[in-house]
Design a protein around this nucleic acid. Sequence first.
DNA 1: CGATTTCTGATGTACGTAAATCAGAAATTT
DNA 2: AAATTTCTGATTTACGTACATCAGAAATCG
Lengths: 341, 341
Amino acid sequence: MRPTVHDIAAAAGVSLATVDRVLNQRPGVRLVTREKVEAAIRQIGYVRDVAAANLAKGRVYPFVFILPTGDNSFMHGLRSEVHHATLRSSFERTEIRIVEVPAFDVSALVAALDALQGQDIAGVALVATDAPEVRAAVDRLVSKRIPVVTLVSDLTDSTRHHYAGIDNIAAGRTAARLLGRFLGGHEGDITVLAGSMLVRDHRERVEGFSAVMAAEFPRLRLLPVLEGRDDPELARSLVSKALSASKDIIGVYSLGAGNRGLIAALKAVRPKRELTVVVHELTQHTRAALMDGTVDAVLNQDAGHEVRSAIRVMKAKADGQSVIADQERIRLDIFLKDNLP
Amino acid sequence: MRPTVHDIAAAAGVSLATVDRVLNQRPGVRLVTREKVEAAIRQIGYVRDVAAANLAKGRVYPFVFILPTGDNSFMHGLRSEVHHATLRSSFERTEIRIVEVPAFDVSALVAALDALQGQDIAGVALVATDAPEVRAAVDRLVSKRIPVVTLVSDLTDSTRHHYAGIDNIAAGRTAARLLGRFLGGHEGDITVLAGSMLVRDHRERVEGFSAVMAAEFPRLRLLPVLEGRDDPELARSLVSKALSASKDIIGVYSLGAGNRGLIAALKAVRPKRELTVVVHELTQHTRAALMDGTVDAVLNQDAGHEVRSAIRVMKAKADGQSVIADQERIRLDIFLKDNLP
DNA sequence: CGATTTCTGATGTACGTAAATCAGAAATTT
DNA sequence: AAATTTCTGATTTACGTACATCAGAAATCG
């Protein structure tokens, strides 16, 4: 059986109350006594039973998710996953609040973060726009001992406790290799469609993609990155224009959201032009496009995993516990038409 | 706040003791009273606090993992993941026992399963060899209300509660498409190396692989499947022989374990022959081979996820609880040299 | 040395559930 | 109607921890 507080008390030759004071860092214990107790804790290998502790405390974890607005499928899916998590709240002792903030809007995000300051919050998860002001706001929360997890897109040089998202440089590199290998030794242009270079995940994907393309597929030339702001309509017109401007385009990498516009543009030129296409985010649109051959591969991050992971990590941090690092690594899913879930 | 047993008692106009009898299916409650209580439970939406219940019961979950012996890296990794789980036992209230059984040995597996019959076991996870005798033994356990989860390889038509592993047909199909696309329009032979056609996962991979190859890459011809019994030495000699027998081999699909033998055989012919290679299971050997270009893609199942998922599912079944299906779906990981973890 | 101040022990209640005991009520049998 | 059996209620203890209170011991101060 696992040792309990009673065992510590017996081992250290003190009372339960003193053990409790040491464990919960309450005042009223002499240094020598405290050390005696701590030694006993280590020696018998006591670990607090979090379930029992939470029961006694009536603990609930008030978490806040800050998500960008926008009607693209990915963010819609993310919101829906957070919503699903709220349905499990009573079991998991969480109380999840969703705060929506305009996409790519730095000051709105900062305001939302700062609004959390005084509140009783056990953790914050946010889709970060990578700006110094946001970093500063996050650091303020961290310094108030509030666990902060970035979701989907990370924040450079901030003190956030954890990032629940994929390695976007690796994603870009992987896209490049898939595209390069699928195109065999062919020569031609590649067009890249991003959402916004303001978010770190998109910048990193471009960076990884360009690096591998330059190093390993010199016969494929990258055209300037198009910014579709994750907006289907804008994406459509940008891609259509690009395709008619250059007849040498043989490959497309879409690394943001708003792919339903991209797919429409591709279908418009489809029988005539042969294009190899890699896109991000598995949605109903990209799934259909993968099935019908409009798209050759879909890179995906599982929003459900990201949300559940963020919650687990925030809980662990709030309790000062460690996490199973391996379990919290968010993986880059590669979908071909054969391994769709 | 969540409703408690006290709320049920009040709502149903009965005592705590009666509520307890209904909840835990103890005798001594008249049918009408029982129905009244059950109605109250539904009406106020009571859900048992499993943490508190486990605390009160002093519940521990004695689980058994039945794993095949064998010194290939994959099984080694699997054992090590189960071992890691034992280290978390005290937190998770589990008591994990590992039973080793010779690989591909039906009667030994059946004996191990039957040995569990009378024992106090909260769940069994096994790497199944797909045979009717094994299925029958599993069904016997299931009929004794013991949760059974197949791990890595599933069991046809059995009543096991859950399968913690990848979709192997999809894995084979994916391998075929990767190999086919990477080979561009080239023509030639493909050799397939399996462990044993006695295990369902390997059979299914071959099936998926062959189907896609036949349907979509008619210029690639499949040679007869080699059976390396997941043994590095055997794999090496089989592949070496095949490579020298046919000069037309331009692709290799290795769907079992024992890849360090395969890799040695490949390296032996490496500078002269150009081969596109897809293998299963990320180990130190396949990882190195992917990095140095001997292998083009690695398909992987995350043993850690499988083990943790199996434990979560066995727990849930033991408690009569539901699982988050999406969270328990084991994914096929596709690794190129760019997205290695 | 006595008077504080600071520490420590003893004890009790609580969290939500499980499980046991015993007395009394209701139903069933004789 | 009495005797029995079957149900139900009331109450208690326990799980491991948190937290509060109060009394008494030890240390520190004047």
